[in-house]
Design a binder for these strands. Structure first.
Lengths: 415, 415
DNA sequence: AATTAATAATTCAATTGGATTTATTTATTG
DNA sequence: CAATAAATAAATCCAATTGAATTATTAATT
């Protein structure tokens, strides 16, 4: 057989990838244990037989794994389910007190430190506001905060802390002006490696991730994630940010900025091109309030302290919704997201109004040929960033990213 | 420890996912074999020791696996490499004749049937043009074409055919008008299941995938893929289509339409909003030629039969480049692609001009805050769709999607 | 030129460890 | 009591690892 001269492939540079490593029994066991835990977490409670069916593992294997997990205290048994033929099944569920994790959200106006349990509930929290963040203050807040919260735990509980996850904005030194910080005050952040600094003063493993990505992760794991395999996520904080979920996993991209969506170009109300973050950010609302002589302080103290600020807030919601709708259409033109999820550092009644307004604005746009995602509210809420941060150590150690092992090739075959 | 009342998680619908299944030895071996083959394919030729280092598997394991693959004829040994201390290493490379695969590209103006070898080279091909496609004709072309090409193979070679992969457009029945088909002639396609029909008449496994996605897959595997872990891909055919590559794997999305990019809204030259496919498609050029009394037939006969059509073609390239540049900026605002790859059913000199024009147009846009991808030419060329189709059976059976096993969690940890 | 040391690729044999298979026990319904 | 299903125990299987041995080469020394 001779080579027909089809189109020649032009030469390309050498590969830049180190593909995934090989597999062996040890890793298989580790993976299967995480899989079992993740399945239980996802479904709330499952019997050994259920897990065997869902994982495709043999009953015996699952039995062994789950006995170990139970012995370690990660799983606990529920009430036997009777009423069906055969031996009653014993649903196993995650033991909420098996693992704790600290989450630090540091923002441009406030910081939160939370202690989260194994099922994603906040068990304790501390809050601090400031005009603008400074490394030393943040560091002091974390160190003393962790000490304070740990004092409320007994020895056994302290041993179960998996680590600390930090959720922080990108490039804090930009936007100093918008935040209202004195010129140069934010420049210190250029030189700071917060993760390393904190890690050197704390006895736990420390993880770090962009704040909006963290919020997105919280939504994936504890919010609407289980119902939507892929979505684009918006978190409206002092600045808006976002995240991307694909195949039920966070996609953070090559530079970690996938789904940053702040710089997305949108058309402003006067037809001018603006960046999304110049419209749909709380600092914009803050400025609008200040211009009208209204004290914006309640915006930062706690999401639940918001009051109805009347007309300026109404205008802000409208402007934001218009911009968000455009951003969602742009995103949907590239990828067929099943949902666009909107959440933010505000009370749920504000969130409802933002989402409804965005739905209304999206309907006004030209949607021909675009597969529009469902536009829905986030289910996690104002603390999503801290919760997402706190979930980093837990996921790194106990759970698995969905669908990464032996993923099926998704082209259908027929013979 | 009492539950602090943090923000309550609102209830969500039950999970819709069946996460990945469990792992066992059999799957581990299957995976490791695919991993070894994929590594060899990616790097061209690697010794057993090289594979051991790159895969993290022990030398012994790799030795056993590679001996099996060699015995099966999938790998063959090259010339020993001397000149360095120690026993000379024997580079193993993919045996191009180990596996063959058919690829069918069916389009709105022409169809191609190719026989591809294990390293992605086209070994034989058939081509047919038509005014518009009809199921019976396509079916006849495939059946007789496969018979014809198989007759040129000996028995041993015939046994090595892995299957047939079809690359076809979405919803052929839309756009009948633009194609110039008589009203209703394309409606038959609504009821047709081409994959099933062909599968029932052929003795090979049959796979099917969107045509632009297939082209994107060919680029990933045989083109620039190894150098760019994520890119957005445009294939300019009679209609423009595209694909998305993330983490060195095709992302086709929930509905399989991820990266369809045809309906992406762009601003036309008179400021009006148009869909990308209404500007940057070859059928547009066809119409421009026809309006000027130039015979457009050479567009369809073979990509290499294109001549310089002069002014109308120049105009088409300019318009297309403007639209493509906008599409790339929109895509880059959502995800941080490392590259935007442009290819099409035209000769490489046209591709070069389109790409250069797109680079120029992109530079004119407002790029503040957007991480712009490199805009580059596809390395595969006009037959990308057929090659991508043909690679479906091969990937399904012998190779692995990159990075799907034991993927590392990508949040850095410090202790 | 012959000899020896060092290095690296490869393979052989024994061991390890986790999943599966098969058989058994337990608890329930009808 | 029969049928059914969950859960477990013991035996078996299988692929990866470990550690030692073999082979082929270069580099240094006599």
């Amino acid at each position: 057989m001779s080579t027909l001269d089809g189109p020649e492939h032009t030469p390309v540079p050498p590969p830049i990838l180190n593909p995934a490593g090989g597999a062996n029994q040890v890793r298989v066991r580790a993976y299967n244990e995480r899989l079992v835990l993740s399945l239980v977490r996802l479904y709330g409670a499952l019997s050994k037989a259920d897990i065997a069916r869902r994982s495709g593992l043999s009953a015996q294997t699952v039995s062994v794994i789950m006995r170990v997990l139970e012995k370690e205290g990660l799983l606990s048994r529920g009430e036997p389910v009777r009423g069906r033929v055969g031996q009653p099944s014993i649903p196993m569920h995650i033991n909420p007190d098996a693992v704790y994790s600290f989450g630090l959200k540091m923002g441009r106006r406030s910081a939160d430190l939370v202690l989260m349990d194994f099922v994603g509930r906040i068990r304790m929290q501390l809050h601090r506001t400031y005009a603008y963040p400074l490394p030393d203050e943040i560091l002091a807040f974390v160190i003393s905060g962790i000490r304070e919260l740990e004092e409320r735990l007994d020895d056994k509980q302290r041993c179960r802390i998996a680590g600390l996850g930090i959720a922080a904005p990108f490039e804090l030194w930009n936007w100093a002006e918008e935040v209202g910080a004195p010129a140069g005050a934010m420049e210190v952040w250029r030189e700071i490696d917060l993760q390393a600094d904190i890690a050197s003063r704390v006895s736990h493993p420390v993880f770090m991730q962009n704040d909006a990505t963290s919020a997105c992760g919280a939504e994936l794991v504890f919010g609407v994630g289980p119902s939507y395999p892929d979505f684009v996520y918006f978190f409206i904080g002092s600045f808006i940010g976002g995240g991307i979920v694909l195949n039920s996993a966070i996609f953070s991209g090559r530079t970690g900025t996938a789904g940053a969506i702040g710089p997305l170009p949108v058309r402003g109300k006067n037809g001018e091109t603006k960046q999304l973050l110049e419209i749909a950010s709380i600092f914009v609302l803050e400025n609008m309030l200040r211009e009208r002589g209204i004290d914006p302080e309640p915006l930062w103290y706690s999401a639940d302290d918001w009051v109805d600020f009347g007309e300026p807030m109404e205008a802000w919601i409208q402007d934001s919704a218009k911009a968000l709708a455009q951003a969602i259409v742009a995103a949907a033109s590239i990828l067929d997201f099943s949902a666009a999820v909107i959440d933010g550092g505000f009370p749920s009644w504000v969130r409802s109004r933002v989402v409804q307004a965005t739905i209304d604005e999206a309907a006004k746009l030209d949607l021909q040929g675009v597969v529009m995602p469902e536009i829905i509210e986030g289910a996690v809420g104002a603390q999503a960033r801290a919760i997402g941060g706190a979930s980093l150590p837990i996921f790194a150690r106990y759970l698995t990213d969905q669908n990464v092992l032996f993923k099926e090739v998704d082209h259908a075959e027929r013979t």
